[in-house]
């Protein structure tokens, strides 16, 4: 009985039923498989989070994003006045999270790689790219550089999925992915 002390003084040496041992072995091996699956994916998989990160003053980061946006601005987003920036393929793209927006809007080309810089100007935010469903935490003071290669064209929403205050649910952003040579 689980509410009584073990019946024999030395229970460690009692035999264990075979079915139980087999299950323990299965659980152990399955654990190893799941463990090595993560390592395997780092070597052969294409979706791994970048480890490129540096400390940055939030104001300095905002300055970098503004300079980037000025250089690569191609138009404004509808009537919102939010700039749309189209970085060079293979180059750097910047986005800043701040209460309550993702800024600026980006336009990327399908199949091209970009170094996407993410950081926050104030609180923690969550970069949630939809509908592809990529979710990355964004901290103030940490500049995270993720190399992404969009593999489908279309309009993608960026939702904030880390609670950042009472206006959290209006915090949105956008990334356009166009066929190479189009857009602008």
């Amino acid at each position: 009985m689980a509410i009584h002390s073990p019946e024999s003084r030395i229970w460690w040496n009692e035999p264990v039923a075979r079915g139980e041992l087999v299950w323990v072995a299965i659980a152990f091996v399955w654990g190893l498989i799941m463990f090595f699956m993560m390592i395997y994916w780092h070597i052969y998989g294409k979706q791994n989070l970048s480890a490129v990160v540096g400390r940055v003053d939030p104001e300095v980061y905002v300055g970098k994003v503004e300079a980037f946006t000025e250089k690569y601005k191609v138009r404004e987003e509808g009537e919102t006045g939010i700039p749309v920036a189209k970085p060079e393929a293979g180059g750097d793209a910047y986005m800043v999270a701040r209460t309550f927006e993702w800024w600026p809007v980006l336009e990327l080309e399908k199949g091209k790689s970009y170094k996407l810089h993410l950081s926050s100007a104030d609180l923690q935010h969550g970069f949630s790219l939809q509908p592809t469903n990529i979710n990355i935490q964004v901290h103030p003071g940490l500049e995270h550089v993720v190399t992404v290669t969009p593999n489908e064209s279309g309009t993608f929403g960026v939702v904030c999925n880390e609670y950042c205050g009472l206006g959290h649910h209006v915090m949105g952003g956008r990334i356009y992915v166009v066929e190479p040579g189009q857009g602008g």
Binding site: V53, G54, R55, Y61, L142
Partner: peptide, 8 residues
């Protein structure tokens, strides 16, 4: 965390 370098 303490070893995170400064951003370029």
């Amino acid at each position: 965390i303490t070893q995170i370098p400064l951003a370029k």
